[in-house]
Design a protein around this nucleic acid. Structure first.
Length: 858
RNA sequence: GCGGACGUGGCGGAACCGGUAGACGCGACAGACUUAAAAUCUGUUUUCCCCUGGAAGUGCGGGUUCGAGUCCCGCCGUCCGCACCA
């Protein structure tokens, strides 16, 4: 049997594709367009299996759509700014620019080796001045439109990376990259007004019907829209200087008559104003000390201090409420102040019980008696009828909310309000390896935009990264500039933009990588939106929310016609591997060990010494657990197609896939068996006469395969599709060329031609080699996806299982589409089934056409 | 605590609309080829039993239905996201 030789075939076909320039994307209004995109990689220097999976998945889509006649855009670039380059520079004394471009060169070679259907002519890196200069241009446009502002504010400070983090980049109170506990720091910051788009971003989710429900939900929760009432309490007696009233926000205005006290955050300006009182000062200090980590919040007891101030109830001027400072109220949500209704809010209840404050129920649960209903240690938050509430008595919760809002509005004390959890996006980073914010600070004119003619504001060549901190800020001359307005001496802004800004519009730029404007509208109008975006779930709220925001902002600035950038999103699972440790606890990498199987148990030993190892959990491939497998080594051993095939075949794409050596060997075996079928097929001979039974059966199987594969690819069930290819190969093996009639040989040739086209998105190199072997015209990459005849996907005679009372008791054969009455006759005439029915009377016969027969009998 | 997803052989998984549960692959076992091994090929492989057949079986307990892995109710478990959000 001839072995398939990927070492020879794979480079040959990649060269052939490149020579024919087949993947160049071209605007062609005669054809439907398709934009397939995978999240672009950070150029870390080496390809890992996660990349192999991500880009193989996207490549299946891109190649399939090409074969279906779409004009396809499938580009690639590099998310190239960011801290790893600075860290490499600091640790090894290399230049971050050189380090990054070297890594890009290495990874480009590895990616090209994967045989992806990429239009490489559109490649760029976000650290190219030609890219970030255009980013600076639209940044200034957004500034002009009021979407960029500077504000002194409390920011999340990562003490390890020495930079500011956005809220989205703080996970469990720690920096998303460094893992360091985040500190609060006051700093002048640049913000993008993402909150202006909160409603749009939320409502837009409803239109994204080809996004995973999970991601839409995560964004919905992150944006966190809530509707309620914002109103001001008047102080009883003299108001503290500078305070007319006390603004609070509530989603439960229906419970206003259950008010017990008013609470403010420790960071609230009023609390700070009262800090002259040492008791209050001490309490504020105590609150600030408390960490923001998950565990601390979980266990933190609700504590507070009474300010001594009192405010007047909005619906009863004779009723006053005490004002407390409480640790469970957050300054950065709502107004940083609440009115508390302990009977119907658990936090308020815990607090009220601790400090002996009143608990007065105002919502009566259905079926409860108002005379006896009482709240114990659990607040009642369910539906019910309002009572103890003057003008709201008898209303249900929703009606009471509306009534309370109307009354407050008519009193001029406040109004219905929508509040978001989403905060504006702090985009400035105190880093040298990033896109400079294109402004100068002039002592006379203030903050002044750099004119577009002077863009890009490029990074200097000679940044010093030997020490932590902002290399740009300490550069001796770079920041010196003339003010564009008055010409006087001024200082450049030394903050750079968050790298998530870089990745928020690269897909737009891919449509026109050489345009003078940031986005060429004609090109973007043709290609956008991205029809299928593929990437990891970890970007569910970071990148995917920012990109949606920026795209909308650019749309509103007239640069784009499309508001939502990605109409289809697919989030793929991770690549995992078993972990192995020595008895001492040290991790051992897979290449150093041997797995021995005894029956159903497996044992791992160190290859060199035979030392037994502990087989641990299956986890995401990571350097720290040493459970990685280098793609390059797999490509060398089995070829690229085997690696692609395995990561695509072994699990559904959205789930994690477990890398195993035996699995990739299975894929390699399949490739050789496929090759053997093509290799053993003699040159096409004239088909002789009518196809015989075997040929017809093969034809039907082929049409069934096309149907199954088409449906599997369309619905991202690539693993099932590949299983169909495996099954079909078994059919081919059962009809070998060497013993075939000439009619069957002709049918085999047709089947192989279909097979080559169906496997092309998955194993593109093998498909070309196989296509050439059977004399296919041109390259398979240019061959159309095969069609199928629905009539041929069903057999003429179907085997129907026959159940008696729901249990399988036999089967019969019937013509496809046979009338239920005829099927019933066949069933009743069957002696085997008659035997099973002995002593029973048939009560009912259910015939499901071409599927099953069920006899109900007793 | 809130929200969501998922529980199927030794393993990854299939079963798309409620219609033969376990496709396909991996592993294991047996056989062929071989001096031998690797590779390759052929076969078997959910469990149990009184084995020409039969029973049970998709986390557990109920329900709907002629028929449930699939739908409904209640538990249990695993994973993910958010988390003092007023």
């Amino acid at each position: 049997m001839a072995r398939y030789n990927p070492k020879e075939a794979e480079p040959k076909w990649r060269a052939a594709w490149a020579a024919a320039d087949v993947f160049r994307a071209q605007i062609d209004h005669a054809r439907p367009k398709y934009y397939a995109l995978e999240m672009f990689p950070y150029p870390s220097g080496s390809l890992h299996m996660g990349h192999v999976r991500n880009y193989s998945l996207g490549d299946v889509v891109a190649r399939y759509k090409r074969a279906r006649g779409f004009s396809v855009l499938h580009p690639m670039g590099w998310d190239a700014f960011g801290l790893p380059a600075e860290n490499a520079a600091m640790e090894r004394g290399v230049d971050p620019r050189a380090w990054t471009y070297d890594n890009i060169a290495k990874m480009r070679d590895e990616l090209k080796r994967l045989g992806l259907s990429i239009d490489w002519s559109r490649e760029f890196a976000t650290c190219d001045p030609a890219y970030y200069g255009k980013q600076q241009a639209w940044f200034l446009d957004l500034w002009k439109r009021g979407l960029v502002y500077r504000k002194e504010g409390v920011v999340n400070w990562d003490p390890v990376d020495q930079t500011v983090l956005a809220n989205e980049q703080v996970v469990d109170g720690r920096g998303w990259r460094s893992g360091a506990v985040v500190e609060k720091k006051k700093l002048a910051q640049w913000f993008l007004r993402i909150t202006d788009y909160a409603d749009q971003l939320l409502d837009g989710l409803a239109t994204l019907d080809r996004w995973p429900e999970k991601v839409r939900l995560m964004q919905e929760n992150w944006i966190g829209r809530s509707r309620g009432l914002k109103f001001a309490f008047q102080f009883d007696g003299t108001a503290p200087a500078g305070f007319d009233g006390l603004d609070v926000y509530t989603t439960r205005p229906d419970t206003l008559f259950g008010a017990s006290f008013v609470g403010i955050a420790a960071d609230h300006p009023l609390a700070e104003r009262l800090a002259a009182d040492p008791r209050i000062a001490a309490f504020i200090a105590q609150c600030r000390k408390g960490g923001a980590s998950e565990a601390e919040i979980e266990t933190a007891e609700k504590i507070g201090v009474d300010t001594g101030l009192r405010v007047v109830h909005p619906f009863d001027s004779s009723w006053t409420l005490p004002v407390w400072i409480a640790n469970f109220i957050l300054m950065d949500y709502g107004t940083g102040a609440i009115f508390a209704c302990p009977a119907h809010d658990q936090r308020d209840l815990d607090f009220a019980r601790k400090y002996g404050l009143p608990v007065k129920p105002v919502v009566l649960p259905p079926g409860e008696d108002p005379a006896t209903f009482a709240v114990g240690s659990e607040a009642y938050t369910g539906p019910g009828t309002i009572y103890n509430s003057a003008f709201m008595d008898g209303l249900d919760v929703e009606a009471a909310k509306a009534a309370a809002i109307t009354r407050i509005e008519s009193q001029g004390q406040g109004q219905g309000a929508t509040v978001f959890r989403l905060r504006d996006w702090g985009v400035a980073r105190q880093r040298g390896w990033g896109c400079p914010i294109p402004v100068v600070h002039c002592p006379a004119c203030g903050v002044v935009a750099v004119p577009k003619s002077a863009l890009p504001v490029a990074l200097p060549e000679d940044l010093d990264f030997s020490r932590p901190g902002n290399a740009l800020a300490r550069h001796p001359t770079w920041k010196d500039a003339a003010c564009p307005d008055c010409g006087g001496p001024a200082t450049r802004e030394t903050d750079t933009l968050d790298t998530f800004v870089d990745s928020s519009w690269y897909f737009d730029r891919f449509t026109c990588p050489d345009a003078d404007e940031p986005i060429d509208k004609a090109a973007a109008d043709y290609w956008m939106p991205v029809d299928q975006y593929v990437g990891g779930i970890e970007h569910a709220v970071l990148h995917l929310l920012y990109a949606r925001f920026i795209n909308r902002a650019l749309h509103d600035a007239g640069m784009l016609s499309v508001a939502e950038p990605f109409t289809g999103l697919f989030t793929q699972g991770m690549v995992t591997h078993e972990t192995y440790r020595r008895q001492t606890g040290e991790w051992v990498e897979p290449s150093l060990l041997d797995i021995k199987a005894e029956g159903n148990t497996r044992r791992a030993v160190l290859m060199e010494t035979g030392e037994p190892l502990v087989i641990g959990d299956v986890e995401k491939m990571s350097k720290s657990k040493r459970n990685t497998v280098a793609p390059g080594e797999i490509f060398d051993a089995y070829g690229v197609d085997a690696a692609r095939l395995f990561v695509l075949s072994d699990s559904p794409p959205e789930r994690d896939v477990q890398w195993t050596t035996s699995g990739v060997q299975g894929a390699w075996r399949f490739i050789n068996r496929v090759w053997d079928e093509f290799d053993s097929q003699p040159p096409p001979a004239a088909a002789s006469g009518e196809p015989d039974a075997a040929a017809l059966a093969l034809r039907r199987a082929t049409h069934r395969l096309v149907k199954a594969m088409t449906e599997a690819v369309e619905s991202f069930r690539f693993n099932s599709g590949i299983a169909q290819l495996y099954s079909f190969l078994n059919v081919l093996k059962d009809n070998p060329a060497k013993s075939a009639t000439s009619a069957l040989l002709a049918e085999r040739h047709a089947a192989l031609s279909v097979f080559a086209r169906l496997m092309a998105p998955f194993t593109p190199h093998l498909a070309e080699e196989a296509w050439a072997r059977i004399g296919g015209e041109g390259m398979v990459v240019n061959a159309p996806w095969p069609d199928y005849d629905r009539a041929l996907t069903v057999d003429e005679v179907v085997v129907l299982p026959v159940q008696v009372n729901g249990k399988r008791r036999g089967e019969i054969s019937a013509p496809a589409g046979a009338d239920p009455a005829d099927v019933e006759k066949i069933v009743l005439a069957d002696p085997e089934i008659a035997r099973k029915l002995e002593g029973l009377t048939i009560r009912k016969v259910i015939v499901v056409k071409d599927r099953i027969v069920n006899l109900v009998a007793n």
